[in-house]
Amino acid sequence: MHRRRVEEAIFKGLMIASITIVAGSLLSIVAILAWKGLPALNIAMVTQTPKGGYYLGKEGGILNAIVGSLYLATGATVLAFIISLMVALFLQREYIGKTRFAGLVRLSLDILWGIPSIVYGAFGFAIMLYMGIRASLLGGIIVLTLLEIPILTRALDEVVRMIPKDLKEASYALGTTRLETSFKVVARQALPGIITAVLLAFGRGIGDAASILFTAGYTDRIPTSLFDPVASLPLAIFFQLGTPFPEVQARAYASAVILLVIILSISIVSRLLTKRLARNTVK
């Protein structure tokens, strides 16, 4: 009896330790970034593009990277959403249901989900070389779209599958087509889940560096066309960290704080929106 109690106590201790480690890592990440990054953070960082000698520690900011990242992630998320929604709806029972093709598509999505972003980057760049496209906003958006498609489709597929069958049957009983039911009933009912999935994909898109390392390029200017190279926050952090100057490295930490704040806001907005929209769905 005694031994069993001890075992219980030991494992409960280990479990609490595990949770503490997880919570502690999050706190430690936020604390260290705040401590190192906040002193270097100022208004110029978010309102100016780099001036001459910025990477040697002179004036300027990383507005180019902030705007660039928003362009990249927004473009990719819009494209990925259009494709993913079509695929997720098509995976419903009334379209392809449980056929072999559906199984194959889901396997393909699982594999795509697992493909490292650097592989998307290298593949994308090889294709771009072949087609004669330079590193540009367009290239970055295309590669990020590929990266986001499996994340978004899998999330949407799950949301769509949760829609009660009765609801769809009620809709079909009124004589609707599959398209009408998909968009007027399923998509509307799934809206909170769809928003969460889209914001999740946007967050992944804005934070990824490896896929756009070769495909988006880097520039101190804000792009004016799809064919201009574009800067991005993760790469701004990476490049500033790579300079030998402490002032510039401090700006890398400050840039990381900006990126973290963006990610945090996305997560908060996602929670608020989901809660608010959930009121409008049929329970």
Binding site: A23, L26, L33, L241, A256, I263
Partner: peptide, 27 residues
């Protein structure tokens, strides 16, 4: 505690790789 940990875990999952890299470097 579960209610508190869930968003924390989601947030941890959403932190970009470069930020983890900086943390690894500094910590």
């Amino acid at each position: 505690i579960s209610a508190l940990m869930k968003p924390a875990i989601d947030l941890l999952a959403g932190i970009p790789p470069v930020v983890y890299g900086i943390w690894g470097l500094l910590a």
